[in-house]
């Protein structure tokens, strides 16, 4: 498992993709942060920054996940992994953790960069809110990475994988806005359950809601599991 993890991490930096991801992340993140908090004057609510950051993931997460499996399939290198003495779960898990390390590492580094001026310039700092937001983002990011990885396993075209991932993440985020326009109660209930966004609010208040935590964790596990199934299934067909 560690072999594939290492290889994936290395691959992010032997191609420009890892650098592009980090550059865009830092640039957009810095701009958002300075605009929404440092320059926002009296409203020093840091949550609006974290909420906006989520929408950045629509473009950033596919950068990390699009090639995970699509590229292996195209280059036929997956044959190497699938005939090596490792289990499918190890293979999928290693790839997930590599993409997640990139995501979480960059996010945490960027956040530290943001919080230093924030701590210096703002007076009423609510540490619980900050931590809640960070935990929330780490969870929601994990769910998105798992979804992106699953989509990457479905195609051998990176570009298709990226577009599909963008569409799915955008849909998941925007469902909660559409929800308020829907009259039918049952539909609203279903949509709010799917809506990844609505569960994020608790975290923005600094509340660690176990239900939300489990919700995001289960999305991660379901999509990791589904990716394993995709490979299991391909072997039989």
């Amino acid at each position: 498992m560690s072999a594939i993890y290492k290889r994936e991490m290395q691959a992010y930096f032997t191609s420009p993709i890892g650098f592009i991801f980090i550059a865009i992340f830092f640039l957009a993140n810095g701009a958002l942060f300075s605009y929404l908090t440092l320059q926002a004057g009296s409203t020093s609510d840091i949550s609006s920054y974290f909420l906006t950051l989520l929408f950045l993931f629509i473009i950033l997460i596919p950068l990390l996940t699009m090639k995970l499996f699509a590229e292996e399939r195209k280059q036929k290198t997956e044959q190497l992994l699938l005939t090596a003495p490792i289990s499918l779960t190890d293979m999928v898990g290693a790839k997930f953790f590599a993409a997640y390390t990139m995501f979480a590492g960059t996010f945490l580094a960027a956040t530290v960069c943001n919080l230093i001026p924030y701590m210096i310039y703002c007076e009423d700092i609510n540490l619980a809110t900050i931590l809640g937001n960070i935990v929330g983002i780490l969870l929601i990011g994990g769910a998105f990475v798992a979804i992106g990885m699953f989509i990457s396993a479905l195609t051998e075209n990176q570009f298709v994988a990226a577009i599909m991932t963008i569409a799915v993440i955008a849909a998941l985020l925007f469902i909660s806005f559409a929800n308020s326009y829907i009259g039918s109660a049952p539909v609203r209930v279903v949509l709010s359950w799917i809506s990844i966004f609505s569960r994020f609010y608790d975290f923005t208040y600094g509340i660690l809601n176990i239900a939300s935590l489990l919700y995001y964790a289960s999305i991660m596990f379901v999509f990791i599991f589904l990716t394993v199934r995709v490979y299991e299934n391909r072997r039989w067909n």
């Binding site: 290492k6 290889r7 290395q10 191609s15 280059q75 044959q79 190497l80 090596a84």
Partner: peptide, 27 residues
């Protein structure tokens, strides 16, 4: 040890890195 029809090579690695990766992969 299996060599498929199309050799499964990671083009972005050197031969050294690649063989070390295989070594780890096969444990």
């Amino acid at each position: 040890g299996f060599l498929p029809e199309q050799p499964p090579l990671y083009l972005d690695m050197t031969v050294e890195e690649y063989l070390n990766f295989i070594y780890d992969l096969k444990g």
